[in-house]
Design a protein around this nucleic acid. Structure first.
Lengths: 151, 151
DNA sequence: TATTGTTATACTCTATAACTATA
DNA sequence: TATAGTTATAGAGTATAACAATA
């Protein structure tokens, strides 16, 4: 997104001001730009990072289970996993109970890269906490998670 | 986004829980799905709706000024305006002060469609207020707008 | 020299249908 | 029949470079 330089004549936003959807999109753009730039130093995208976290936390889970938990279509998750496997960060092994599914696990390299990515995540969240204040930071996450579950 | 059906075995989210970026992305998906489906009944996308609002609020503004205010590259805004003009919702006229720029304005049809879209927007926000509570709804918007400006 | 609107291009994310192999 | 993974495809959104017309 291009940076919104506040020019001499600011634009009237009309009903966009106070709109949750519009505010969400703008905030999401700002936050993801910061985190994505940070993760890029490890050659990771945000979607790959979240996949690594879920596989780490749920070793042996199938592709479909992970993709559903991430809110990603299983069809669109194939390329993500293929890339992580090609880079030897994730291993897939056929399940013995159900030969249709793969069991996903991190390799030692995957664990290592994830721990470095987590440091970047912590630093990223710290920047947000510094900008927003710890109380408002926590409050914002609570409201967002509440919105995702009730709406 | 596929709906997150809470299965028998929920996945552990690890460091994704409490993460602002992840919470933002999930909430944004939920909210934009509802609003986009609503706007689709008028043949509008959210990006077109926001363009109509800004042109209505700032008649005579140029494409670049509107696109910058929306956080959209001017190159990517060309097709949006072209479609709105093709549908006779927006008119472009060369500026007399600066022949490089267009003055953007809504047509009577554009004003009419925008007013119907605004009703959908109000209904959409009402659904969110019902789900979240009026206080939390207002609080969320404040935090998001704060985040966009300070981060 | 700089800016506006434009074209071209490419990459990401997302959504859907259809196939295979297994169940 | 139903599900897991896969392929193919198409639509959005986004980012950058380069151009003609105008400033």
């Amino acid at each position: 997104m291009p940076s919104r330089k506040e020019t001499a004549r600011p634009m009237r936003l009309g009903s966009l001001a106070g709109d949750v959807g519009y505010a969400l999109k703008r905030a999401q753009a700002v936050v993801s730009a910061d985190f994505s730039a940070s993760l890029a130093t490890l050659g990771l995208r945000a979607s790959q990072f979240s996949a690594l976290v879920l596989i780490d936390q749920n070793p042996g889970a199938s592709q479909t289970r992970v993709s559903l938990a991430l809110g990603v279509e299983k069809a669109n998750f194939v390329a993500t996993i293929a890339d992580l496997e090609r880079r030897a960060l994730v291993v897939r092994s056929r399940s013995v109970e159900d030969a249709r599914t793969y069991r996903l696990e991190l390799t030692a390299q995957g664990v290592d890269l994830l721990s470095r990515a987590r440091e970047l995540q912590v630093a990223h969240e710290s920047r947000l906490t510094d900008s927003l204040g710890a109380g408002r930071h926590r409050q914002l996450v609570e409201l967002l998670e509440l919105l995702s579950t009730v709406a």
